[in-house]
């Protein structure tokens, strides 16, 4: 690995000096220091570090506020909290914001360097999740449609949707949390949903609510089954799903500007079903 460039954010001159010295001894280059929110963005944009170490308790804006500002300025910023505070809720808040690691003060130099290396090295579990994710969700969708309606399903892969996807009529969104949080999108036309309800209930749908409930339940089952399959591959994924939200509108665009979505089209007897799945790399260095 080439020399890692680090920026240190801490209001204490002594702490900055100590962290900077620890980093230098560990083979890193300290390219910038900031003592408060005021000089944060300018320093970051000037020195373009690979890693930022961030104190939590600072006068004025705290480490979380500074981290939000940095991530808003550069969503790919890699921030490691370095603080004497370390409790479950502070860790959770850091993860939710998008902070990648957490090291407790007083700093153990070897530990800090290990966290930095982990942050910058490829995350094999995440890569496995990305490799298996869409395939697993495809399998769960296919299995369930085939079981429920006794009709075949084939898939046409789509490139990751770089531009926004336009809904066919009914969109279901399910949030996923766990080692890597994510989102699943299932989208189909109202006609396709109507036809599917007719096959499942052996009668035409009586109401729009009935159709939406079927679509929500299908998405719920697909997400639950797929996440269980992924958790079986590696239990540390610990994926859990939210209940489904359903959106109805033709011409609604669905955008995921901060999360890469992989997608496929399931070709079914009822019409095409769009399936999109994305996972956030997120926190990987909570050791």
């Amino acid at each position: 690995m080439s020399v890692v460039k680090v920026m240190v954010v801490d209001d204490s001159f002594f702490s900055r000096t100590l962290i900077a010295e620890t980093l230098r001894l560990g083979g890193c280059e300290v390219v910038g220091e900031a003592d408060s929110f005021d000089s944060l963005l300018e320093t970051y944009n000037n020195c373009k570090p690979d890693i930022v170490t961030m104190d939590i308790v600072m006068p004025g804006a705290d480490g979380f506020e500074c981290s939000r500002a940095l991530l808003l300025n550069d969503p790919s910023a890699k921030i490691i909290l370095v603080s004497s505070m370390k409790d479950e809720e502070t860790e959770l808040e850091a993860k939710r914001i998008g902070i990648v690691g957490y090291v407790q003060k007083p700093i153990d130099g070897d530990h800090l360097i290990k966290v930095i290396k982990n942050t910058l090295s490829p995350d094999s579990l995440y890569e496995q999740l990305i490799e298996l994710g869409l395939e697993t969700f495809n399998e769960a969708l296919s299995q369930n449609i085939t079981r429920m309606t006794k009709t075949p399903v084939t898939f046409v892969p789509m490139d990751t949707f770089e531009t926004n996807y336009v809904s066919q009529g009914i969109t279901t969104v399910i949030g996923i949390i766990g080692r890597h949080s994510g989102s699943m999108i299932i989208d189909l036309s109202t006609e396709a949903a109507d036809k599917m309800v007719e096959v499942l209930l052996r009668r035409p749908s009586k109401s729009r609510e009935e159709v939406l409930a079927m679509v929500a339940e299908l998405a719920n089952i697909v997400a639950g089954v797929a996440c269980s399959m992924l958790n079986k591959k590696d239990k540390t994924y610990s994926l859990r799903v939210s209940p489904p939200s359903v959106f109805c509108s033709t011409n609604t665009e669905i955008a995921s500007p901060n999360l890469k979505i992989q997608a496929s089209y399931a070709q079914t007897t009822f019409g095409p079903i769009f399936l999109g799945i994305g996972f956030k790399k997120g926190a990987t260095s909570w050791i």
Partner: peptide, 16 residues
């Protein structure tokens, strides 16, 4: 915990 945000852009839609 929260999932990453998704954005919907459209007219005359209904959310459930």
């Amino acid at each position: 915990d929260i999932s990453p945000p998704l954005l919907l852009i459209g007219r005359n839609g209904q959310a459930t």
